[in-house]
Design a protein around this nucleic acid. Structure first.
Lengths: 159, 159
DNA sequence: ATTGAAAAATTATCAGG
DNA sequence: CCTGATAATTTTTCAAT
């Protein structure tokens, strides 16, 4: 349950079938999973343990309805900066990590340097994030894209 | 375990604590969760069932390491269209839904109409998606943003 | 590496306050 | 709505193949 495999793990068809089932519903019993993937309890149990140990399975979690917990508003923020020293990036990263409304952040290739995905209660909460961010690190240009409708959202990777 | 609550659910502090624990680690036992949130097994169990029934908890799943399953490459695709009839949007939506490499898709306010997040094995797989998409629906302008580094990625909502 | 069984732990139910 | 006990199910271990 520990390693972060930077490289592709060796997996056979049975492993993939198990991952499909677990991604679909991690609350299923071993018996159910074993039946669906055409195997039996012990091998499935051993393989799940291996997939966790190898870091293929990172965590087991529940997915919440954002609206039900008051996080109706989703922004994608495109960020350009003129600063590229280590110190700047470190402070920027720390700011993103410390803010729970930041669900995702990527460093990009090309003209736009970063994209950040936010879930907040309303536009005011976005502005609070924005003000706090520019107070902490110097930013050249920001474009906020406001989601009007979530057409698709899944955590399921096509294994 | 059924309703999709479009509106914010009534929840007290204990419910929130339970959601924090489940989001952090859904494989914990009821006893562990009960101890951490300062309650006991039965109330925690009843509340979890209610949170599922109310649709606050949508699903229980495992989060995989994308690199470990060979999905090293992440793109955000910004899409502009000139078509805005119902038929076009329906075909576009169907195309996104049917493609497992599309993990997220939003309709946006402003100049850019849609943003789509993709996980693929390499740039060739992105191009295959792009070619298939423009074969199915007419698109005015596409900008693909390639992620060089995932700085943050979480499914945990700050409840 | 899988089978089948047995032990340990956990989840789900329920009577009573 | 909570406490504590009980029943049902599931997870985990293990000897044998």
């Amino acid at each position: 349950m520990r390693e972060r495999s930077e490289t592709k793990a060796r997996m056979d068809l049975l492993d993939r079938k198990i991952l499909i089932e677990l991604q679909d519903d991690a609350s299923q019993s071993l018996d159910d999973i074993a039946r669906k993937v055409g195997s039996s309890k012990t091998p499935v149990w051993n393989r799940i343990r291996k997939l966790k140990d190898a870091g293929v399975i990172r965590r087991q979690t529940v997915v919440l309805d954002p609206a039900a917990v008051g996080l109706d508003t989703c922004f994608f923020v495109l960020i350009r900066t003129s600063e590229h020293e280590a110190g700047w990036q470190q402070r920027f990263l720390a700011a993103l990590q410390s803010r729970p409304e930041v669900l995702e952040a990527h460093r990009l290739a090309g003209e736009i340097d970063y994209i950040v995905k936010l879930r907040v209660s309303d536009a005011r909460a976005y502005d609070a994030f924005y003000q706090a961010l520019i107070a902490e690190v110097k930013i050249y240009n920001v474009t906020a894209l406001l989601s009007m409708e979530e057409l698709k959202s899944t955590t399921i990777l096509p294994v």
